[in-house]
């Protein structure tokens, strides 16, 4: 369970997060949605201890993120940031293997090799496995980063806009993989999404943020209502029902 209590974040004169409290039970896919600058990525960074906590408290599986040793947290929680800097002259297989670092400190055994191969297979990276990262397209690199996060094998996975740069085939595939990780492996997935229709189909719960606050929280059918969407994103959009799932016509 992830427990966020009264978290605020201030950078210079800007209030990024204001008194955010949120509880996410173990299991399931939670989507964070909201306009640019709503504080979604900042909240994710705070949960993943990439930023120091200014006020409030956050714990993952009972481990407070600000005092638990980083290595111990890395076995519980994996984070994928938006466009992470990628070191040069590194092969895809090597990068995916880095996901095992928290467990092995660099010594790869037979079991790790199996996990690495499985992750490469799962994300369609077999043909790219021995290519250098700096020779790949943005989408291919993104897939390699996601594969590394999966390979870390943690109960909790935080992903910040993982669909960036992915084509439709791989975007759909990734969302299905996240769903499968939650359903089959009992993993807990928290994902920042801009494509609200992916959230509608694959998430169990949608948390909508605006200006550093949580403005809506619930099952997709509850949150994806025209009045809520207008409040969050600032313009009117139609929502239709397609086979029981809401489809937001946000582009017209």
């Amino acid at each position: 369970m992830i427990e966020i209590k009264n978290v605020s974040l201030r950078l210079g004169d800007t209030q990024i997060l204001q008194d955010v409290s949120l509880t996410m039970p173990k299991g399931g896919v939670t989507a964070l949605v909201g306009p640019n600058g709503a504080g979604k990525s900042s909240l994710l960074s705070l949960i993943a201890r990439l930023r120091p906590l200014q006020s409030g408290s956050i714990s993952v599986d009972g481990l407070p993120v600000d005092t638990t040793p980083s290595r111990q947290l890395a076995k519980t929680l994996a984070i994928l940031r938006q466009d992470p800097a990628v070191a040069s002259r590194l092969k895809v297989r090597e990068l995916v293997g880095f996901g095992r670092f928290p467990h092995q400190r660099g010594r790869i055994d037979a079991n790790d090799l199996l996990l690495i191969e499985a992750a490469l297979q799962q994300f369609g990276l077999m043909e790219l496995a021995d290519r250098f990262l700096d020779n790949l397209s943005g989408g291919q690199r993104q897939r390699a980063m996601v594969a590394m996060a999966f390979c870390q094998g943690t109960d909790y996975m935080l992903l910040d806009e993982p669909l960036n740069n992915l084509d439709m085939l791989f975007a759909r595939q990734l969302m299905r993989d996240l769903r499968a990780a939650a359903d089959n492996d009992r993993r807990t997935v928290i994902v920042v999404l801009h494509d609200i229709n992916h959230a509608a189909v694959y998430a169990d719960r949608i948390v909508a943020m605006k200006a550093g606050r949580i403005v809506a929280d619930g099952a997709p059918a509850e949150v994806l209502q025209p009045d809520v969407l207008a409040q969050v994103f600032g313009y009117d959009m139609n929502v239709i029902d397609v086979g029981g799932a809401p489809l937001v016509l946000h582009h017209r």
Binding site: S70, A78, I79, L80, R81, A85, A87, L90
Partner: peptide, 22 residues
Amino acid sequence: LRHLLDIVALGADSATGLGVDW
């Protein structure tokens, strides 16, 4: 520290995510 250095090369965020006390 050679394995740790490989991880540090990924940058502060990725290294922290992989359990390095940056």
